[in-house]
């Protein structure tokens, strides 16, 4: 690990393409070291554009983005500070996977065997000397990842890295991201696969129409959203028992209610004490997908 302070700060960033396409609109958020941040939003929300501005590839119309306090274009050793995987298409088709990485090693003054080590890491050992032309989507995705991790960067920025990966690959990627965050690195991952993100991310930043709709840790977002489904033939008695308790009760169907503000254990105990017969007592988990749709639909 090289440069300290791998915080990404996006500050009031705006990008207008061709005078009228407002791809990113006054966006501000930050990404902390030692955690995985999921960057979510529907197609065309501005995720890729934002990442490209963070990486100095697209010039913001206004606002700025910094990595460890410095704009990307002023980083002294970018390869060793930030690793990015943007599109799976950015390879010369006639060049081999290994040569692609060796060129990067040359620029960054890394030993050439780093190229082979990374190819082993991403499972491309056998394809190392094959031309990228013949690579499948998932293989390209793995090669992008190898390129991103080449310089052991403090900050890792990945645009839809799970695209094209098989289920094994996705599980492996999840483990890899976890591992990187545990080492104290900053990990920013855009994704469409909400379940994947929910499982692996510590924080999420949700974007719609170029604007921030919600940012926070999964814990914050799910706070108060966990509920318990209680089914009983005698709801009337349950209501009586819950009177005076700090809970909200919401009817689900004639034999069940959804209760917020109390754990399943507390509710079970309460019902037992009051002698209320229960047919079901189940925890309803926070659902990122539901939150995502409620935040990004109908706009």
């Amino acid at each position: 690990m090289s440069a300290p302070g791998g915080q990404i700060v996006v500050d009031d960033l705006t990008k207008v393409f061709g005078g009228n396409v407002r791809a990113v609109d006054q966006l501000s958020f930050s990404v902390e070291p030692g955690s995985i941040t999921g960057f979510l939003g529907p197609n065309g929300a501005g995720k890729t554009t934002t990442l490209r501005m963070v990486l100095g590839l697209v010039r913001p119309t206004s606002g700025r983005a910094t990595i460890g306090g410095v704009p990307y274009r002023q980083l002294p050793n970018p390869t060793q500070t930030v690793g990015a995987a943007l599109e799976s298409a950015s390879f010369h088709p006639a060049r081999t996977a290994r040569n692609h990485l060796r060129i990067m090693c040359t620029v960054a003054d890394l030993p050439m065997q780093r190229a082979d080590e990374m190819l082993d890491l991403v499972g491309l050992h056998d394809a190392a000397r094959r031309k990228v032309r013949g690579f499948s989507m998932g293989m390209r995705q793995r090669l992008s990842l190898a390129a991103a991790l080449l310089g052991e960067p403090q900050v890792v920025v990945l645009d839809e890295p799970a695209n094209g990966l098989d289920p094994d690959g996705i599980r492996w990627l999840r483990g890899l991201l976890r591992h990187l965050a545990e080492q104290g690195r900053t990990v920013l991952v855009s994704s469409h696969q909400l379940n994947e993100v929910e499982e692996v991310a510590d924080r999420v930043v949700i974007l719609n129409h170029g604007r921030l709709v919600r940012a926070g840790s999964i814990a914050e977002l799910s706070a108060g959203t966990d509920s318990v489904l209680v089914r009983s033939p005698n709801l009337q008695a349950l209501h009586t028992a819950l009177t005076g308790q700090p809970v909200t009760v919401e009817p689900v169907d004639p034999t069940a209610v959804r209760v917020r503000g109390m754990s399943a254990a507390q509710l079970g105990n309460l019902a037992f004490t009051a002698g209320v017969e229960l047919h079901e007592l189940s925890l309803q988990r926070f659902d990122l997908e539901e939150l995502f749709f409620s935040l990004t639909s109908g706009q």
Binding site: L57, Y72, E87, A89, S90, M104
Partner: peptide, 11 residues
């Protein structure tokens, strides 16, 4: 698009 890695490595 190899310009992307090129420019990322050498801004």
């Amino acid at each position: 698009q190899t310009i992307t890695p090129t420019v990322l490595q050498t801004p």
